[in-house]
């Protein structure tokens, strides 16, 4: 790593309540793990979304590869990687 480089990318996992799994919420850039945790607190828990934070260097995550064509027909159970769908998509966000 050179000093001129972009700060590395970290994947962020937040535990929202005791007893629940840490869930992937997104990513951010930070120079090291300590700062990644601090930044994750500010970026991803501004509305008290979490009680515990994991940070993982993005390049340390290995993802399963969907079979090229198969994946289109079988959005299967093992389709897990960087950004899992854990949000319910709302019917419509209230306007005013």
């Amino acid at each position: 790593m050179s000093e001129k480089d972009n700060w590395p990318l970290w994947e962020i996992f937040i535990q929202s309540k005791p007893g629940l799994n840490h869930k992937h919420v997104g990513s951010l850039h930070a120079p090291d793990a300590e700062m990644a945790i601090e930044n994750a607190r500010d970026v991803y828990t501004r509305r008290s979304e979490g009680i515990s934070i994991w940070v993982v260097p993005a390049n340390a995550i290995s993802a399963s590869s969907p079979e090229d064509e198969g994946s289109f027909y079988e959005p299967s159970n093992d389709k897990v990687y960087r950004h899992p769908t854990f949000y319910e998509i709302p019917d419509g966000v209230k306007y005013l």
Binding site: G26, R47, R82, H83, T85, Y87, E88, I89, P90, G92, V93, K94, Y95, L96
Partner: peptide, 26 residues
């Protein structure tokens, strides 16, 4: 709000998060 239903997963999920937070902005 339209983009919460966009076809690219990570974009749609980012928009859901954003829309939740935006409701107070307006």
């Amino acid at each position: 709000v339209m983009l919460t239903r966009t076809s690219y997963g990570p974009y749609a999920r980012a928009m859901v998060r954003i829309c939740k937070e935006e409701s107070f902005h307006q």
